[in-house]
Structure formats: C-alpha cells, structure tokens
C-alpha cells in the first residue's frame, strides 16, 4: 500500500493517541504489578497452587478462581460459538429488509444492555433452567465423565456461569463475525455461485474462508468473558473449593475481587493477593486480545487482493 503525504501526516497525527493508549495499558498492568509484589514476595508460587481464602489467618491461594475464570470463559466461548455463527448467518444471508433490520437492532440492543440485567435474569431463570434441562440430564447420562460427575445441587456453578457469560458476549462476538463475514469481497461470493453452489454450500465455503476471523472473534470474546464480573458473581456459586466437576459451585477471579475487595484492606495481604490474581487474568486477556486482533488484520489483508 502506498501512502500519500496527507495520509502519512494523518497517521502521524494519530501516533500520540495510539501510543498513549498503549502506554495507558502498560501503565495499568504495571500498577497492578506493583500492588501484587507484596503478595508475590510473601507467598510466591504457593498462591497459584492452592485454593484458600482465609484472610483472618492470612492464608491465600487463588488456584480455584483462576481455573474457574478459565473454565467459565471456555464454556462462554463455546456458547458464543454455537449461538453467534447462526445469528450472524441469519442476519447476513437469510433475512431480508425490515425483519433483517429489526433483528440487527435487537442484537445491538442486547449488546448494549447493562450486564446486571443478564446477571439477574441468569440467576432467576437461566440457572434453574440449565439445572433441570441440561446439567441433570448430562449427569444422569454421562456420570463417568469427570466434568459431569457431580449432581448439581443448586445449579449455581462454573457451568451455569459459563453459559450465562457466554450469552452476554454473544452480541459482541456476533457483531465481530458479522462484520468480517460482510467484509468478504463480493468476488468470492460470485465465485461460489459461479461454480454452481447452492446457498448453504456457498455459506459454508464463505464461513470456512472466514475461519481465521471467527477464531479471532472468539479470542476477543474469550478475553471479554474473562473480565465479566456481575454475571459471574450471581451465577458461579462462590465456592473456593476446587472441583473437576463443572456442575459444582466455584469462583472466578473477577467474582472474587468483586466480593472481597471492599473488606480486603482490613487485612495485611488480602488486597495484594487480589491484585496478583487480577494481574494474571489481565495479562492473559491482553495477550489473547492482541493475538485475536493480529489474526483479524492478517486475515483482512489476505482476502483483499
């Protein structure tokens, strides 16, 4: 790509903004790191291999919330994958005119809704529903699989939190997939129909063409799910007990911070431990977002010849 002098000037004028955003990110991570040092020096790896939250005795271990964050985000991403692709395809291929506009506005609306609404809805309706129609049947049918090995007691669990968070990131992931799907140059659509593809065949070719963009969208969705707090607090069950079973209550880092931060300054290390956990999650989320964006950009440059 050749840039004119004006373009270069324009890009140059954006440079301070771009660098300051990057600087801010680094600054935030650095600030969190500073606050974590106290706990890291005191407890070291111990923090990452045990699951205890007992500030009165100053004993901490955030393994369970860390695993919980990752597990809920994986489930959330799978949920988003299952729901977002059909939504995106419906919006871009199968709906027309007025209905299409209503449908797109609804997705946008859902994306703009405050997460507290998802949180309340999920704990009131989604969790009981999942318990009766998903978790219990799975446990009955496949109890020998460790992930499904426990009977859901209340329903509030890693699994429920994952699905609930997943539903809340669906609008975001759908928008990302839709945007990339719609940005596929018309010539590839013509290529599909030009070789005699039926509509569903063309859609499947174009979807596989956009696979890197879908992966990138899911990585960005995963990063967002990692940080989701309100929904996690109301659905995850708040238990520091580490279980291999998805139907048992658990914790996520975001939920731990949300519920413990207010009182943390009463204790010596509690606050610093929370910062340590936050640091790990922030770093993971940042790396995934960055990687997702890189894949997206590379994909775009590949399909436009």
């Amino acid at each position: 790509m050749r840039l004119s002098k004006k373009d270069k000037l324009f890009l140059l004028s954006l440079l301070p903004l771009a660098t300051s955003v990057l600087a801010l990110l680094i600054l935030i991570i650095f600030a969190i790191l500073l606050r974590s040092l106290q706990a890291i020096n005191k407890f070291g790896l111990e923090l990452l291999v045990s699951s205890v939250w007992s500030p009165e005795q100053e004993i901490y271990g955030v393994l369970a919330p860390l695993i919980g964050s990752l597990a809920t985000s994986v489930i959330a991403t799978l949920t988003a994958l299952i729901l977002s692709i059909p939504l995106a395809i419906a919006a871009s291929e199968y709906l027309k005119g007025f209905i299409k506009n209503v449908f797109s506005s609804l997705i946008e609306l859902a994306g703009g809704m405050p997460t507290i609404i998802y949180a309340v809805w999920a704990s009131e309706y989604l969790v009981p529903f999942l318990k009766t129609y998903v978790m219990e049947p799975l446990h009955r049918l496949l109890p020998f699989i460790p992930l499904f090995s426990c009977k859901p007691i209340t329903g509030f669990s890693i699994f429920a939190a994952g699905v609930a968070i997943g539903i809340s990131v669906v609008p975001y992931v759908t928008a990302l997939i839709l945007e990339s799907y719609n940005s596929i140059p018309a010539m590839y659509k013509e290529a599909c129909y030009g070789i005699g593809a039926y509509r569903h065949e063309a859609v499947s070719i174009l979807l596989s063409l956009s696979r890197p963009a879908i992966v990138a969208s899911l990585l960005l969705g995963f990063a967002r799910a990692l940080g989701e707090t309100t929904i996690a607090v109301t659905t995850v069950g708040s238990s520091m007990y580490l279980s291999s079973c998805l139907f048992a209550p658990g914790y996520t880092v975001a939920a731990l911070i949300a519920t413990q931060f207010a009182n943390a300054n009463l204790y010596m290390y509690a606050e610093s431990v929370l910062y340590t956990a936050a640091l790990i999650v922030t770093v993971i989320a940042t790396i995934l977002s960055f990687y997702g964006s890189v894949i997206m950009v590379r994909w775009r440059s590949r399909i436009v010849v």
Partner: peptide
C-alpha cells in the same frame, strides 16, 4: 464462469 478479476479461494 471466469471473472474479470481472478478470484481463486484464498483459503
């Protein structure tokens, strides 16, 4: 059909 601009599937 062969189009004016070559459009092999890049993936």
């Amino acid at each position: 059909m062969v189009f004016q601009t070559p459009n092999p599937f890049p993936h």
